[in-house]
């Protein structure tokens, strides 16, 4: 299967790979996995007191599309409020990366990672 140029670009030059301290009260962590292919994705967001995402890091073990989806998401969420970030849809990710139908679940995983991170943030600040 051929990957699109955008997937290859994110795969070869992934943005914002890394980890933040998950115990930092400003850091929200979202962990999700895809049982069908065994992919594991961790997305971390650094959120300031105004609810704006200042920084994002990811670590993904999975195929090129899963890595590209999470890499893209870290670029997209930076500077957004958590409410705006929570509205990012997998369809937009899939479209941007021109994912084929069999790889749509990678974009779903990335969307769910944002939601999981936001849920973690809300439980930390509650």
């Amino acid at each position: 299967m051929a990957y699109s140029a955008k997937v290859i670009d994110h795969y070869e030059n992934p943005r914002n790979v890394g980890s933040m301290d998950k115990n930092d009260p400003q850091v929200a962590t979202g962990m999700v996995g895809a049982p069908a292919c065994g992919d594991v994705m961790k997305l971390q967001l650094k959120i300031n007191d105004d609810g704006i995402i200042e920084d994002a890091k990811f670590k993904t073990y999975g195929c090129g599309s899963a890595i590209a989806s999470s890499s893209l998401v870290t670029e997209w969420v930076k500077g957004k409020s958590i409410d705006e970030a929570g509205k990012i849809k997998n369809t937009a990710i899939a479209e941007e990366l021109a994912l084929p139908p069999v790889k749509i679940h990678c974009s779903i995983l990335a969307e769910d990672a944002i939601k999981a991170a936001i849920a973690d943030y809300r439980s930390k600040t509650a």
Partner: peptide, 19 residues
Amino acid sequence: SEQASFSDNSFLMRQMELH
């Protein structure tokens, strides 16, 4: 569904460590 994401935090953390 097969496509649904899995979100058992401690299990996934362990998977990360193993990777």
